[in-house]
Amino acid sequence: MRHWIAICAFVTLTGCALETGADELALPVIAGGSEARETLILESADGWSLDIEEARVAFGALYLCASEMAGDFCEVARGEMLETIVIDGLAAPEEVATLFVESADVRSLMFDLGIRHELRETDPVTLSPLPEGASVLLRGNASREDRVEPFEFAFRIEPLQAGTTTVRRSMETHTPAATDQLLVELNLANLVREMRFSPYLEAGTLEDTQTLRALRLAIMAQRAIEISWNEPSQE
C-alpha cells in the first residue's frame, strides 16, 4: 500500500512541477501628451510658429506582436487593446484603457487610428469619437512675422486595405511584467517637425496638400505617437 501511495505522490508532484506557461496580464494603458501643458508653441518646417490649442488623436485597436515585423506575421497577437481611445496631446498621461497581454516577448506592434477595415467590411468603419470621425484633430493658430492664421486640421487615416491595420512598427523586445504600464504619448513636436504650413494656406484646404502628407507621415512613420513600456522604478 505504501508503494502505491508513493507512486501516486510521485506522479502527482511530478505533474505539478512540470506545469509551466506564460501568464496572462491585464496592464493599464497610459495615454497623453509627451509635453503636457495648456498650450504648446511649436515650429513647422517652413518657419511657422504653431500655437497648438487642441491636439487629439484617435488610437486603437492596438496589437502587440511576437514577430519582428507586425502585419501578416501577427495573425495571433501577444497582446491587444481593442477599444478606440483618444490621446490628448496637451494632457498629462493618464490611464485610459486596459491592455491584455501575455507575459512573453513582444517585438512589434500595430494599431489603427480610430478607423478599422475588417475583412468582411466593404468600407472602413469609423470608431473615432472625434468630430467627423477624424483620426487626428489639430487646432490652433499659426503665426509668422505679423501674420496669424487660425487652423483646424481634422483628417482620417484609414488602413490601406481590408484586413490590415493602419500603422505597423517594431519595438524593442520586451517581456511584459505584471507591474508594467503601456505608455502611449502624442509627441506634437514630432508631428509638425516635417510639416509645411504654407501649402495649406495656398490651397485653402488640407486635402491633397503637402501639409496633410507630412502630418500623415509623421503619424504613421515618424513616431508622432510614441509607445513604450513604462517599467516601474527599481526602488
Binding site: E19, G21, A22, C65, S67, M69, F73
Partner: peptide, 24 residues
C-alpha cells in the same frame, strides 16, 4: 503527465508559437 520537450522555436512564419518547452 504529458510534456513537450523541445517545441519548434519561434520563426518569422510562426513568431508566436502556441507551445513552449516544458508545457503540458
Amino acid at each position: 503527465d504529458a510534456t513537450l520537450l523541445e517545441p519548434p522555436p519561434a520563426s518569422a512564419e510562426e513568431p508566436n508559437p502556441a507551445f513552449s518547452e516544458g508545457a503540458r
